[in-house]
Design a binder for these strands. Structure first.
Lengths: 233, 233
DNA sequence: AGAAATAATATGTACGTACATATTATCTTT
DNA sequence: AAAGATAATATGTACGTACATATTATTTCT
């Protein structure tokens, strides 16, 4: 891996990763500076920079100006988690997607939603519950609150036809959001909707999205038994 | 946001994102090519390239050579999920971490582990179960299989002192891994270990890691009731 | 000795140029 | 008209240079 042919940033990336894996450079170690590495590998500093930047964002390296670049002491690996629209997730499994609106109501939010989205108890909001199906079987139960102030046009959306989930993705892009994953025992009602037994362990995803400081929507997504969320690292 | 002062790739990033959010460019739209954008915003193509590359990796844009750059039609948002060592996760919550090895045995793997790691049924493996505690209370129950062929030195590790979780992070870096999140009802034994009741809904994380084509370890991480995994988007 | 000012240094990024590569569009040929 | 060869084009990336910025090391001043 010495000089000669031109190096790509990918090859530099791989070579550095190899040295970390083979423990040539151990956790905590200071690695050579960009200029030295560039010389060593026979490429420009920009190329090394790109490779090291990538490795840092993947969690393998810690970089600081003047202090240099070190192998991460406690590699906090950053897994990538794709959050697609429910319909695409179902279709991606090769199953037939269907959706049904359970109910939709315009009203003021309960305390926990106010806290989630930092809105007042008198806010004008839309409360929607719906069921997403895969091959005719319940797949996910959605319980969602949408701020009408933040997305006024949602009152005109035909939520019988398009799910709030999908409508929001298309019409209310957000700048940031939080997701919480947890496990809960199915309540009487939840079990009925998802056609399972009360007490069954269910995978819960709670999502809140914001446009800058404005809370847009807060959703409670409850998956049918057996659901597994995959992530690669 | 027109010409004049020098633009940073961040400012280009933000401006493009603004145009997507304000729907100047709608999902599916073709946006101007790099050279045009660079001219429009008063910066070099490399700067625009960096910004658009970033936006594409965040899932906002789809880019293809010759075809150009489009606003993602179905924004598959990529959430970032930090996977720290358990100890750091507990300490990060301001709680006191403790760890106890339950048992450790060298033996051949059961079928499901063979399938997970693609190893033979005669493989030399280490089976470890342990309990991680936060403020003295059960936090996570770990059931792990480690391939001794892949990481021979683990037999010398003192797994009473350091958890397999942490030892592996320090001594057996992996190139890729899979994570599955799900929810399960606690079995009799699991409930006893985590000091809860059988049937309680528990958050389960199943992790398998690889070094190239070699399976290293497969772990079943079962969290105490109430656990929530956070992710930002 | 301790504080403040100053220098040194590794990474961060912007620019212009050049060429590579994937993909689409166009032109030939049969 | 279908198939195959060829040109056109937008993104991808490598390079060298220049300067910005954060942080550490050193020196100066009190």
């Amino acid at each position: 891996m010495n000089s000669l042919e031109q190096q790509s940033w990918q090859s530099v990336h791989d070579e550095v990763l190899r040295r970390i894996h083979t423990r040539v450079w151990k956790p905590g170690d200071l690695i050579p500076k960009e200029v030295e590495l560039a010389e060593q590998l026979g490429c420009a500093r920009a190329t090394v920079n790109r490779a090291l930047r990538e490795l840092a964002s993947e969690g393998f390296l810690d970089r600081r100006r003047k202090a240099g670049t070190r192998v991460a002491a406690h590699p906090v690996r950053r897994a990538k988690l794709d959050i697609p629209v429910v319909r695409l997730e179902v279709e991606g499994r090769g199953q037939k997607y269907a959706y049904g609106l359970l109910f939709s109501e315009r009203r003021t939010p309960p305390p926990e939603i106010c806290a989630n989205l930092s809105v007042t108890a008198e806010s004008d909001m839309l409360h929607i519950t719906s069921l997403h199906l895969a091959d005719g079987k319940p797949f996910m139960f959605e319980d969602r609150w949408v701020s009408i102030a933040a997305t006024p046009t949602i009152v005109e959306a035909d939520l019988e036809k398009i799910s709030a989930n999908e409508w929001l993705v298309l019409h209310a892009p957000y700048t940031r959001g939080d997701i919480y994953f947890s496990a809960v025992n199915a309540t009487e009602t939840e079990a009925k909707v998802l056609r399972t037994d009360p007490g069954t362990s269910l995978f819960l995803m709670e999502r809140t999205t914001w446009e800058n400081q404005t809370g847009i929507t807060s959703a409670r997504l409850l998956f049918a038994p057996g659901y597994r969320k995959h992530s690669a690292i």
